[in-house]
């Protein structure tokens, strides 16, 4: 069965697209050694996914080299140092978004679908060519937002663009960096507030976690099983489980039972089924 493509996008920069891509990819590969996962960094000119994964010193070729035929696809893929079933196709650092076209992305991803079960695309910020290159071959889209006004507004714009695509792309919402204490004191919009405004299905909620900075410093995503005590790490692992069809209730980041959310996930049966 050809692999599925999942797009990570947000419109606004700095909400956690790359962090989410890295953490969810690692969790997906770690939870099942039989699932082959590939990440593509689409942020040509400003690559960062390699750093988050601690793979920055292993890059030889990149996405643009593959598209231009300077190397074979396999030569550009960087194997993860911890998980043998995880690979990264890095972005070029010296070129810009116009170095590839949506058509080239479709044929590249068609080739990757034969090699991997899941292809995770880390889209750049914005809604210009980099975004269109990223959407070109996506089957599912995870819209990442924080509970802040500008991030939610940009997320709405991106959802509108994805809905207008001729090809059907399923949209899922991932709320990142939620501060439970601020929601409690009515100084931050809640999960329900954001869902009401955006009107798409909820995939997960990631609590604000200082450990994310430490994990990036080390190049070790928080969702690695060693980080047992991290709230964000666990939340990312839960998202990975939901993506493979496991029902996981929302984490209790409020220190109380959030029954509404549990019901939400009952509806979310299986997003991606493996044959």
């Amino acid at each position: 069965m050809p692999g599925k493509t999942i797009l990570f996008t947000s419109g606004k920069g700095g909400v956690g697209k790359t962090t989410s891509t890295a953490n969810i990819a690692v969790a997906l590969a770690a939870q099942d050694p039989n699932i082959n996962v590939c990440m593509i960094d689409m942020d040509i000119g400003l690559r960062n996914l390699d750093i988050q994964l601690g793979l920055e010193n292993r890059i030889v070729y990149n996405l643009v080299d593959v598209v231009e035929g300077a190397c074979k696809t396999k030569q550009a893929l960087v194997k993860d140092k911890r998980l043998p079933n995880l690979a990264l196709l890095p972005a070029a650092q010296t070129r810009d978004k116009s170095a590839v076209t949506p058509e080239q992305m479709v044929s590249l991803i068609d080739e990757l679908r034969e090699m991997f079960d899941l292809i995770l695309i880390d889209s750049p910020a914005g809604i210009e060519q980099g975004f269109h290159n990223s959407v070109a071959a996506a089957d599912e889209a995870i819209i990442i937002t924080t509970a802040e006004m500008s991030a939610v507004r940009d997320a709405d714009r991106v959802i509108g663009l994805l809905e207008a695509y001729p090809r059907k792309i399923n949209c899922w919402l991932l709320i990142n960096r939620l501060r439970a204490s601020m929601v409690k004191s009515n100084d931050m919009m809640s999960v329900d507030d954001v869902m009401e405004i955006l009107g798409i299905k909820l995939l997960g909620v990631i609590p604000e976690d200082e450990k994310i900075i430490v994990s990036t410093n080390k190049g070790e995503p928080l969702s690695l099983a060693v980080n047992k005590t991290s709230g964000a790490g666990q939340a990312f692992r839960n998202v990975a489980l939901r993506l493979t069809g496991v029902e996981v209730p929302l984490m209790d980041i409020f220190g109380e039972n959030q029954n509404i959310f549990v019901k939400q996930f009952k509806k979310l049966k299986s997003l991606i089924k493996f044959g």
Partner: peptide, 19 residues
Amino acid sequence: VTSRDEAKKRLQLTIFHDR
């Protein structure tokens, strides 16, 4: 009126106009 209510109200209106 909490800042959360204010954010939600302003955002709903802004997004409506954006759409």
